[in-house]
Every structure is written in C-alpha cells, then in structure tokens.
Amino acid sequence: MNQGNRVNLRRFSRNEKFRNENRLAFLFIAPSVLGAALFFIVPFVMSLGYATTDSNGLFVGLANFKNLFASEAFRLAAWNTFKFMGAAIPLNIIIPLLIGCLLYKSTGGGWLKTIFMSPLVIPSACAAFFFQSLFESNGLISGILGVNTDWLQTDASFAIAVAVYVWKNMGYNLVLVLAGLAGIPKEYYEWAAIEGMGSVRAFLKITLVYMIPTLFIAFVMSFISSFKVYRELYMLAGNYPNEKIYMLQHYMNHQFAALDYQNLTSASFVITFVIGAFVIVFFVADKKSEYGE
C-alpha cells in the first residue's frame, strides 16, 4: 500500500467515524427537536393562520394586527410591561452586582449568601402570601402607617411588583456575579493598589470591565425572567389587577379565556418579533464588545 492510499484510508475512516457520531447525535437530539417542533414551532407557524383570518376563517390580511394596536387594553399592557422591564431589569443587575462585590470581599459571609439566594427556592405561592401579608389593607405596612389601604390596588402596586421581582430573582444573578468576580485575577487589584487607584476607580476600570460578559448573561436571563413575574402578580392581585400592573401576560391569558385566538396569535407574533429583535441587538452588541469594536 503506497503513501497516498494510506492517507485516503485514514481520511475515509475518519469521515466514517464522524458520520457515525453525527448520526448518533442526531438520534439523541431527535426527541427534543421533534417535541419542540410539535409543540412550539409548528403550532406557532400554524397560528399565523389565526392571525390573518377572522373568527369565520376568512382571510383578513393584517386587520387583526390593526385591531390589536387599536386595543386600549393591549397598549396599556405593552406599555406597563415595557415600563416594568425598564425599571426591574437594571435593578436586578445593579443590586446583585453591588451585593456580590461586598460579599466577595467579606469573609465568613456564607450565611448572607444563603439569605440572598433563598428567595430563588421559595415557591411563588409562599412569596405571594408573604407580600400579601405586607401590603394588604390589614397588612404590616398599613398597620405601621395607621391606614386601611390595600396597596396592591393603588398606584404603588407598580413599585411593589418591581420589588417582588427583584427580591425573587436577584439570587440567580448573585450566583452569576460571584462566579464572574472569582474569575478576575487578584493581581489586577494589587497592581491598581500599587498605582494608587481608589476602590471606586478600581471597580469602574477593572471589576466592571471584566464583568461585562457575566452582566450580559445576567441581562438576558433577567429579560426572560421579567415575563414570568405574572405568576406572582396573579397570586397577589388576581387576573384583573390595578391598571398599573396589568401586563402582557394578563392580556394574553384573557384573550385565551375569551376565545379570541385572532388577538392572541397576533399579540404572540408581535411579542415574538419584539423579543427576537431585542435579543439580536443584545448579541450583536455583545459580539462587538467582545472584539473591541
């Protein structure tokens, strides 16, 4: 067997092995792909039919989308959700970052870490019960202030919703922040101290710079989890809460309950498009920052 044949044989056997491994991998991921296709992708594409037809199945083009944007309830829900994300996501990153920096430097703060992370494992129903006992008309806050006010039915409900979200979710970001901080070489801080750099400057020039990839992940996770605040809000204030905390999830649930699949699917497409656009922008921004552009 000459040299050329040996090379071809090696290449053939490597390709064969690659093909076999690929086949096996595809076989293993097939159930997940099939499940996702069957229960998410195919229904989502099929729902385009509902979004472009009326309740009698007649094609109406973009009329359902026009009706959707004309709906006062949809606009209120979208605006509230947008405002909620604008307030809650930054807080859900800044607070764990600051707490993480303090905990990382302190010694023996293990029990504090446990306290901050415990809301993560507390069931939503228990969390809702806790906040209800704080904010209802006979709750702790009303008792302290000597009033008889159900705070969840007032304009303060928005601030309560943000507080509930941050309290429940900051533990996850705290884990990410602590892991990110552990990855920053200590020598950088030693060098900064030798150069006479203050702690605030060291935070801005070293910690924040090296934490950007971690904070990006925290941002994406917070963005996704912000949609899940509905669970707590539903348990706290019911399915028609104060108008300040009427979110897109409320709107979507009610559309399903009212059998309005045209509005439901149109809203789904709009929301998917908006979230998709945001995620693409985030990833492009992240790539650019990664390559120093």
């Binding site: 028609y240 009610h254 309005d260």
Partner: peptide, 8 residues
C-alpha cells in the same frame, strides 16, 4: 378595570 376588561 372596566375599561381594561371591555377593550381587551
């Protein structure tokens, strides 16, 4: 609340 419910 009625506005929200009726305009949904």
């Amino acid at each position: 609340r009625l506005n929200t419910y009726l305009t949904e």
